[in-house]
Simulated scan of single mutants.
Amino acid sequence: MVKETIPSAWETKRLTIKDLVEDEIQPVQQLYEQGSFIHKWDGRSLDKEFVHRCFTVGDLPPNGTKDRFKIQVIRLKSNEIMTGLLITYHGFPQPEIFYINYLYIDKEYQNEGLGHELVTELLRILQLEKYNEVRANVAMKNWPAVRFWTKLGLNTINGFFGDKEHGENQYADIELIKTF
């Protein structure tokens, strides 16, 4: 059974989250590039067209479809300042699984509990929509993200992907899950 996608617009106590619109592509790309420091942990290179590609075709899993993909902009309610980016896929690898591809909060607003607030509300929405599992893929060298996701209940390891040996120029990801 195919599950509904999360709403095109939703909110938390301090945030509004809305689907990306075309005129936001450039500022959201700049926000994405601000978070490119994670590439020192995941071994990837900066994609200068990432947000445009997400908007036009999506960042899809194998056999994925654009209608199950979302790229959403996070803003502060108080002043509408763009503070983050949430990228998700609904129904991978099975219809009842929700996948968090990417979450980034602007460095100026990190450590204020905004990410925790956002994910807590997202998990509530997913339970209402009857998803039975949520997954997030995290670079193993990204200790802040590993701590963040495990504190929010994504604390079961589903698998390791990437290099088999540890080293300065070797990288691996860990897929974390939370079941409802």
Rank of each mutant, 00 (worst) to 15 (best):
I125G: 02
N158I: 08
K77W: 07
F180V: 10
Q72W: 11
V51S: 02
E4H: 09
R53D: 13
D19F: 00
I177E: 13
V57P: 01
G159Q: 15
K40D: 15
E165N: 03
N111M: 09
D42W: 14
G43D: 11
F148N: 06
N137M: 06
P61G: 05
G167A: 14
H39G: 06
N63M: 03
H52Y: 12
M1G: 14
V138P: 07
R124D: 15
V119C: 04
T12P: 08
D67L: 14
D23K: 13
P27R: 08
E133P: 00
W143G: 01
P144L: 05
A145W: 07
F160N: 09
Y171P: 12
Y109G: 04
E49F: 08
F55T: 03
K66D: 06
K151Y: 15
T12S: 13
L76P: 02
L85H: 04
N111D: 07
D163S: 10
R75I: 09
F50R: 11
L103P: 03
K18A: 09
K48P: 01
C54N: 03
K151I: 05
D19C: 05
I71P: 02
G43P: 05
P7S: 05
D173R: 11
Y104K: 00
Q94E: 13
N142T: 10
W10P: 00
Q127W: 12
I105G: 00
Q26T: 11
S36P: 04
K151Q: 11
F161S: 15
Y99F: 15
T16Q: 08
